[in-house]
Design a protein around this nucleic acid. Sequence first.
DNA 1: CCCGATCGTTTCACATCCGTATCATCTTTC
DNA 2: GAAAGATGATACGGATGTGAAACGATCGGG
Lengths: 116, 116
Amino acid sequence: MSVRLRPIQALRLWQEVGLSMVRRHAVDLTQRQMVILLTIYLEPPPHTVRGLAAKLGVTKPVITRALDAMGELDLVSRRRDPADRRNVIIQRTVRGSLFLDEFSDRVVEAAGALSP
Amino acid sequence: MSVRLRPIQALRLWQEVGLSMVRRHAVDLTQRQMVILLTIYLEPPPHTVRGLAAKLGVTKPVITRALDAMGELDLVSRRRDPADRRNVIIQRTVRGSLFLDEFSDRVVEAAGALSP
DNA sequence: CCCGATCGTTTCACATCCGTATCATCTTTC
DNA sequence: GAAAGATGATACGGATGTGAAACGATCGGG
C-alpha cells in the first residue's frame, strides 16, 4: 500500500508543512537533527553515536552536538550502556514522542488537503 | 484527488527524504530557505521581500539573507522593479528549477517505496 | 517641491553549526 | 597487567543564521 504522489504535490506538501513550522515559531531543528530524531524513533534500538554517524554519513561530533541540542530540548536522552561503558544509549522521551506525533499529524493533514 | 497518508508513513517519508539529502552532502538549505524557495517556485509572481516576509511571518532581513545565500548558489535571482525602484523582484533560475525537480523526484520515489 | 512613508539592505552583538584534531575513558588482546 | 583499539566528548577556528535597530534610496500626497 504505497503512497502515490506527483512531483508538484510533493513540493506543495513540503511547502505547506515547512510553512506551518516556520509560522508557529516552533522548535527549529536542523535537517540533520530531524533525521537523527526520526531515526531514533522509527528504527529499533539500541542507538549509539557511532551507529547514527555511520547511517547518516557524518562525523561523530555532529551526532554528539545534535544530541546535546535535542537533549536540551528534552527530545531525546542519553545514558551509558552498563554492559559496555564506552557506549552511550540514546533513548526516546515523552516530549520527543509528542513532538513527532504533532509533526506527523501536520504532514497528514497537509497531504489530505492537496488539491490537484 | 488528495493524498492519503498515515502518521507513521509521514514520519518514514520525512526520514527517508532527509536521509538521502544528508548522505548526498547535497545543498543544505535551512528550513526557512527551503520554504522561501518553494514559495517562489510554486506561487504566482511577482515575489517581493516584504511579501515573503509577511507570508512566512519573519522579518525582512531574514528574507534578504536567505536570498543572499540562495543567490550565491544560483537558485534564485533578484532584480529591481523598473516600475517602482524600491521593490525587488525575485525570480527563478534554471538551477533552482532543476534542484526542485530533483528534490520532488526524490520525494515521489520515497513515497512510492513506503511499505505498510 | 518637500517631507513622511515605504522598501530593501546593512550593522551589531550573539548564538549555533561545521570539520579536524585531540582527549579521557573503557574494553580487548597478548 | 600493559599496550592497542574503540567510543564518545571536547577544543579550536571558521562559517553562517538570527533579531533588533538603524540606514539609504525611492515614491507619493499636500
